[in-house]
Amino acid sequence: MSVLETPLIAVVDDDETVREAVAELLYVLGVPCKCFDRAEAFLEAYIPGQFAWLLTDVRMPGMGGLELLRRVKAMEPSMPVIVLTSYRDSLLEARALECGATAYLTKPVADCDIIDLLASAIDHDLEHSPLDERGDSGNG
């Protein structure tokens, strides 16, 4: 995968340790990311189409992750959003999924869970690429 094909991932979490750990994992995988310490900072920097997917914490000072999820889905409905939380809460999980979250993960998150989600997001993008729509995907 070339640099131009590599997706840019947004990581929004008020916990610096989590941001750094996710950024380091993505770096090792060769996937660029941009980290934000709060939802408002992400929205201030947001440009439609800039990010391939968003990983956000739920509970943060200021705007929470569910509100960020709602706003992102209103602006860019197809963007995959992964919700992270330190709290196991089936009602919160149901609300996140109802709002359009692609996945709901509980901290601490295993690297393999993030890798699997990233692989799924990339596969989804490839399946829905303009080449695939023209029938030039090389499958035949």
Rank of each mutant, 00 (worst) to 15 (best):
L105W: 09
G64D: 07
G64W: 06
D89W: 06
I115P: 05
V58A: 00
C33Q: 05
S78K: 14
A121P: 00
L43K: 02
A110H: 05
C99R: 13
V109L: 00
K107R: 12
L97K: 07
R95Y: 11
P32Y: 10
I82D: 00
E98K: 10
R88E: 15
A52P: 06
P48W: 08
A119K: 08
M79L: 15
A52T: 05
S129C: 13
R71P: 03
R70I: 00
S120R: 00
G62L: 11
W53Q: 03
E133Q: 12
S90I: 13
P80I: 01
D111R: 09
P108H: 12
D111I: 04
D125S: 13
A121M: 10
E98P: 06
D125W: 09
C99F: 10
Y104P: 14
I114D: 02
Q50H: 11
R70N: 08
P48K: 05
W53P: 01
L117A: 04
M75P: 02
S129T: 11
L118S: 02
P80K: 00
V109K: 00
A74I: 01
F36I: 10
F42W: 13
A103H: 08
L54D: 03
E133T: 13
A101E: 03
E67D: 14
S90M: 06
G49T: 07
A45I: 15
K73D: 05
A41S: 12
I47P: 02
A110S: 09
V109Y: 01
R88A: 12
E40I: 10
P32K: 10
S90K: 14
D116N: 07
P80W: 01
G100L: 14
L69M: 07
K107A: 01
R59P: 03
L54M: 05
R70T: 10
L97N: 07
Y46Q: 00
L126F: 14
K107Y: 04
G49A: 08
E67P: 00
C35K: 09
L97M: 15
C35A: 13
S78E: 14
D89A: 03
